[in-house]
């Protein structure tokens, strides 16, 4: 139907969303710099998104993480103007979203960006297959064609045989698979996930996360994933933006966040993360000194610490950490053990 790349990048520059009366006026005055509580006190407005800028590469899984009220859900809704941003620039696949006409915007939502919601947003009066086909129906695709497509997608998400059920006959996890299928059915370039798994049981959540990783491998869409769960963020995200009070406080790879938190807020967040699961050897290797043997086994610098354990147990010699041919440093058992030990509060 449409000729274009399979996935598209997103560029966001200086995005603001202020709720409340006279939002425009707040934006142009110095009030916008106030703390949230002070801002509300003074103007009755809430700045949900404050001057946010980031880029998502085509095909990337980009995670926005923050606690509730940090503005992450508002941010993701601004991307397709489900919530109208107050100011800023958004481009998806190079097209300016904020200047799009209503028809253009619908076109964008119909074909290029689709979304998965926390509470699924399924239509209880429609069968699963009609829910999945909803996006196509809205586009005006004929019934036979859209049902055929919906069946394919149902197979893809593992819901074969449930096409004729109604949403309330399915478990929560299955319902979210329907939500996922509905988003996939329109073959979007970008998929937005608004805390899709937070309403699910832990076990099912793990399955669904695996499902996302699998799907990403298979269909390779650009994904923007909102979550308040750090473990989820670390698991899925190629890059993670941490939001607080409407602003991004740090944006980086999981390793960067855990290894080099930008401020106390982020540090506090990542304190309980097992570093060995996230950090690679690059973060703990040191310059070899004269005592170190250079005979130890080599490992690439991107190897996770936990994955180096096995090698370390097999040899008493320090492991040589390499980046291609180049030697980055060495790591010995003690370094690995130290990295794996839970961090103690400084006062202890």
């Amino acid at each position: 139907m449409r000729i274009g790349p399979e996935s598209a990048g997103i560029e966001v520059k200086g995005l603001w969303k202020i709720f409340g009366p006279k939002a425009e006026r707040v934006l142009t005055s110095d009030d916008r710099l106030l703390e949230p509580a002070a801002l509300r006190e003074r103007t009755g407005c809430t700045a949900a998104v404050r001057d946010v800028s980031f880029e998502v590469r085509p095909g990337e899984v980009f995670v926005v993480m923050g606690l509730s009220g940090s503005g992450k859900s508002t941010l993701v809704r601004c991307l397709t103007r489900l919530i109208e941003p107050t100011a800023g620039e958004i481009a998806i696949g190079g097209d300016d979203v904020l200047r799009a006409t209503p028809a253009g915007l619908r076109e964008l939502r119909r074909h290029r960006v689709s979304m998965v919601f926390q509470h699924f947003g399924l239509l209880p009066h429609r069968r699963v297959i009609d829910n999945v086909a909803y996006g196509l129906e809205v586009q005006g695709v004929a019934k036979a064609a859209r049902h055929a497509r919906a069946r394919e997608i149902l197979t893809l998400v593992g819901l074969d045989g449930h096409a004729g059920s109604y949403p309330d006959q399915l478990s929560g996890g299955m319902q979210q698979r329907v939500g996922l299928a509905r988003a996939l059915a329109v073959e979007p370039q970008v998929m937005l996930f608004d805390e899709p798994f937070s309403a699910l049981d832990p076990l099912i959540r793990r399955d669904m996360q695996a499902e996302i990783i699998r799907l990403h491998r298979e269909v390779g869409k650009t994904m923007v994933f909102i979550t308040h769960d750090l473990a989820e963020a670390l698991k899925l995200g190629e890059r993670i933006a941490i939001m607080r009070d409407g602003s991004i406080v740090q944006l980086g790879t999981p390793e960067e966040l855990v290894g080099a938190p930008a401020d106390d807020y982020v540090a506090d967040f990542v304190r309980d993360v097992p570093r060995s699961d996230v950090l690679s050897l690059r973060w703990i290797c040191r310059e070899p000194d004269e005592h170190d043997s250079m005979e130890g086994p080599p490992l690439p610098a991107s190897t996770l610490i936990k994955d180096a354990v096995q090698v370390a147990t097999a040899t008493a010699l320090p492991i040589r950490v390499t980046d291609g041919e180049r030697l980055v440093g060495v790591v010995d058992r003690v370094d690995i053990l130290a990295a794996m030990a839970p961090r103690q509060p400084v006062t202890a």
Partner: peptide
């Protein structure tokens, strides 16, 4: 509201959202 939002996010026109989401629900 999620169902309404989901419909809008798939590019439904206000009319489509009315007849396919609001009224049936």
């Amino acid at each position: 509201p999620t169902a309404v939002e989901a419909s809008a996010s798939l590019g439904a026109t206000p009319r489509q959202t009315l007849t396919k989401v609001y009224l049936p629900l």
